[in-house]
Amino acid sequence: MIVSRREQWLGRVLLVILMAVTVLPFVSLFVTALHPSGTYPAGLSWPATPHWSNFTEAFKAADMGRLLWSSVLIEVGVVPVSLLISTMAGFALGHLRPPGGRALFIGFLLGLTLPFEGIIIPLYYQMRDLGLLNTRWAIILPLIGLYMPFAVFWMRAHFITMPDDISEAARIDGANLWQLFWRIHVPLSMPALSSLAILLFLWSWNQFLLAVVLVSDPLQRTMAGALGAFQGQWGTDIPLLCAGSLLILTPTLVIFLVFQRRFVSALLQGSLKG
């Protein structure tokens, strides 16, 4: 692959410009957050005295500690269960291939492109009848169901590549189906599982529609839902809103920067398969 030096420079310049455009909103958010609370700073301008206190104020106003805890609880409710049941299904459909499995799989595929808005209305009444509105369950339970098409699809794609020999061998060693699944296949599936875990974590953390419709108390919501509520309440105070938004973004950003390789490859693979 020979690329001329001029092309290389063009590429570099373009890349730097695009990075600048990507980062600019974050910078703008940060700088604005330092202006005195209640003012309307014009564009990108460094304040005369940076008001770092906006962050502590926003931390208190948003009740950040409890918000984080709520999102963590939702993640704990959604991700492990989704991983387990989708892996079981993916294992069955991709590896054991039972009669009727193909029809089931096509059934799951149908849900792959479903816009959440399509079913939000019945979900609301369903949750109301179950008495779960305004609880985290109203987000957790539907999310598990909504993740099934993708998660089953993903795990099936993984198990379809696993050679049959491994299972046959284990069977002859006297392993029953559950042992075969749990002792042999799940450990071998760790890379696929961890990527899926990252995707489900991120999607749950950023889920907005379900939170807005089904849960009115921000302290029972996901992070994105809480951010929406924070905007609804403090949208009139720009610096405080910016400070709060940054605080709410921080956990995701930190986790992303720590696990960035994993994230990028999970998301890329995720969309390639999806």
């Binding site: 109301r128 509105l133 305004n134 009115s216 108390d217 509520a229 609804g232 309440q233 949208g235 009139t236």
Partner: peptide, 20 residues
């Protein structure tokens, strides 16, 4: 106390009054 902007309250009113 729960606070929202008026437009948000307007949107939420029917739901909140019934369910919360």
């Amino acid at each position: 106390i729960r606070e929202d902007q008026f437009a948000v309250i307007t949107q939420n009113a029917p739901r909140v009054l019934v369910d919360d």
